[in-house]
Design a protein around this nucleic acid. Structure first.
Lengths: 107, 107
DNA sequence: GTAACATATGCATATATGTTCATATGTTAG
DNA sequence: CTAACATATGAACATATATGCATATGTTAC
């Protein structure tokens, strides 16, 4: 009665896509942006102040998040508001965070 | 009544740990190893045959998985059997895979 | 002991990735 | 139209990462 994931290891493309997906969460800057966006819509300028990261870096990384369809944008005048565009992000971040927390406890 | 994750963005160390954790899943070789280990214990030699990846690469990557405490080992004679050492791996992989599958459907 | 097998590990190398700097694009106010 | 603001983007660079090669370590059989 095992509870396996039915992914065919020979479906190379699926594995590649999965790696690309997880890779997104493997960067501190992107994580900070994503955690911020869990709390609502923000502009690049907002994030600069909130996170203390340069405009260029935030633009580059948020552009990547948009291209990967994790984030969507909405222009309002000179500003562009970014927000999450994926229902799984919340639970994935939570799961990772739970993992980290428990590791911390045990060591 | 929002459902936020209560991670303090100023806890730099937690964010770094989280990024390190997700980074592990962001590599095709490691994903293949982890998916294999979802089905039970395997030796490096098993994985070479199953995955068609070189001994050196598998040893390097499985060593990393062990150091990151995602995988544990058990020696039996000349062989060393590897298995998963983290209850979250299954659900994290599943969540990522669900994400990928749904994206595939919509596009 | 030595040979054969299984796995680990150091080093070199190619490639990927993240950041910065400079500049371009787009928008609004005057 | 021009200045000021907001964001995007290309190029260069430094660092990180994955892999292969060679070799070391560990185990068993003889």
């Amino acid at each position: 009665m095992d509870h396996h994931i039915d992914i065919n290891l020979f479906d190379e493309e699926a594995v590649i896509d999965l790696a690309l997906f997880f890779k997104i969460f493997g960067d501190v800057t992107r994580l900070k942006i994503l955690f911020s966006l869990l709390n609502g819509e923000f502009t690049v300028t907002d994030l600069i102040g909130k996170l203390g990261i340069s405009q260029s870096t935030i633009s580059h990384q948020i552009g990547l998040l948009r291209r990967m369809n994790l984030v969507k944008s909405r222009r309002e005048g000179k500003s562009i508001f970014y927000s999450l565009d994926d229902e799984h992000i919340n639970s994935i971040l939570l799961q990772g965070f739970t993992h980290i927390s428990e590791k911390g406890k045990n060591q």
